[in-house]
Design a protein around this nucleic acid. Structure first.
Lengths: 200, 200, 200, 200
DNA sequence: CATGAATGAGTTTTCATTCAT
DNA sequence: CATGAATGAAAACTCATTCAT
């Protein structure tokens, strides 16, 4: 949810003052928490830390989120929704579609409100034992666009479409990782060009 | 540090019985800790948990490691050494070399004593604020073989060797991530084939 | 304070509309609070819980009661008044009087607006350290009818009137406890018969 | 578990030092907690309070008990065991048996290591919603000796044995309550005499 | 009057670390 | 060497109470 969207919702006359505050505050907390979770990790970030950084009291956070875990979940879901709503609709049939898809993907990664979300995403993926509820959601979310890609590769003369998807997926995962790690090293335009070249 | 190596060190006559036990114990603790760190994460794994799992007392761990953080560092370094000592020596000049390198790489990933180490590796990479000392070491370690690869691509007609290295690196990172995440989904032989094909 | 009494007070012309609402609201809050205190205990019942259950805001409760403790005290006093005003007047001289008294007593226990009050009563009795102000009031209130009973036993050939009162009192206390605990197990008619038989 | 018993167990040579400390400490904590729970109530007694009173750190309590609730449960069970092991064996057939039973009962109530236990017992009985696990145990524990008594009344010409048991039970409950409330007012010898007289 | 966002002190609980035995 | 009882600082979470609107 972007700030602009939040503001538009709030501007609407038929929302009470209290509700306006709630929406703003909730987003505020989620933004701060995402940044800290991403920077220090979920466990190493305390509720106190979040509250301090957001300039509010510890107690208030529990007025908005049932628990620390629930706060994490809401942050995660919110990011996931953004992600999916931007990629889910693209049908990949022609080479043009593929390019369009790769473009959309990298635009998303770059523009995405907060690259911290990806840190969370990968960190959480790495500890399925801890966050097994989220695991399922992630898998489901992926499946659609992986199938999409596989069909594309199959129709375009790939010898092993399954593996091609795997490697492409890996390359993207890896690129995102690198972007998170050393953002200044990634020139997305060049990355896109190489990926499109290597995978068409 | 492999078990075999440990045994060889221990066999050496000029190490006292007591010292032999120390070395074995230390490795035991590190193995257990690595497994638990990988499974539950560093923060979510308590010293008690490690001690229980290793069948020793909490106190004893502090006989071998200064602190929990130091234990982590030693585990990390030990894994890193294995990793580097296996890849650092390969010179990549011909296509054969490249294939050899890719083969060595995947063999390492697959055989590596414990895939939990990679979980640690990536998790730690994702939280630079916490472990920035380690970060530098990793970067240094990588540089060598990245330069190696870049030269290879440059000499073999790549339009953008830097980017090719980046993508290859990303693909490898991504593949490892996927392997950690769904090991049974990764057929290394096929992955290798596709990577070699796409990058030569 | 019964609903009827509340209504009578409210009907009185020289009470303004606003004041009428206040009285009704106050009773509403006390009723809800009593039910929750009785069910979950004083400490385990939060002001939020009471407010929710009463369909009002937390803040409003503080418009009617100084504090949570004051709310408890008012509930307690209100119940106590009902109790005493119904028993204080009976003079026990003949066997008929005794029967009348026992009948009145059990009618009170059974009809009493809310058996939760007894839960409160006994719970509070059991923690003298916390509520020793209330304690004294109860003791005073009891004394009258205990003296009443003792005189009756003394005049009717009891060997140890003091003890007889004690046991009778205990039996009543115990019966109320049982009634609170397993209401359906208590057939008041039979209980009364046995008590009258055993104690005359 | 009496102190003497604890000491005897500890004296036994084949118990390690650590285990000795554990047993003593555990009892120490339970004793302090029982006293405070009885005096202030379960919810109004904090773990800090218990730790202070016992002269130990908060953390240590969790070395011995999983949670505050578990501490309560263990205290409760320990008291219940004492109670049952002393009354469960008496068969009530003759008037002598009944007297013996009543004697044993009051001896138990009087001698019982800690009358605070009864406060807990009654307080907990009054809030079944909160402690419903214990509820069942209490019911089971009672049943035996209630059946025992009913048979006795039935064989000895009671018109309504069920009610007689109820009243007797109530009288006992009530007496214990009074004893807890104003211990100095209860002359057990006289109480026993009256109960035996009224119920035979 | 009525609301509910906000506070902050207090609660239960965890855990790395120490140290007497 | 090895144990595990003990500590204390910090974590997550709760809730009576206040106050701007």
């Amino acid at each position: 949810m972007t700030d602009r969207l939040v503001n538009r919702i709030i501007m609407t006359k038929n929302i009470g003052k209290a509700e306006q505050i709630r929406i703003k505050r909730k987003k505020e907390i989620m933004d701060v928490a995402l940044r800290l979770f991403g920077t220090f990790g979920y466990h190493a970030t305390s509720i106190s830390h979040i509250a301090n950084e957001a300039g509010i009291s510890k107690g208030l956070i529990y007025n908005y989120f049932e628990s620390k875990e629930q706060l994490l979940k809401e942050i995660f879901d919110s990011g996931k929704d953004s992600w999916l709503s931007n990629l889910g609709e693209i049908e990949i049939k022609t080479k043009k579609d593929f390019e369009k898809f790769i473009n959309a993907l990298f635009k998303l990664i770059k523009d995405f409100e907060n690259k911290e979300w990806f840190k969370l995403y990968y960190t959480m993926m790495l500890q399925p034992t801890v966050f097994d509820i989220l695991e399922k959601e992630i898998e489901m979310a992926h499946k659609d666009f992986l199938v999409n890609l596989m069909n594309y590769f199959a129709k375009n003369g790939s010898e092993d479409p399954e593996m091609d998807v795997l490697i492409l997926h890996s390359a993207i995962d890896g690129t995102v990782l690198q972007y998170i790690y050393v953002p200044e090293a990634i020139d997305f335009e060049r990355v896109k060009k190489v990926i499109i070249k290597r995978f068409t």
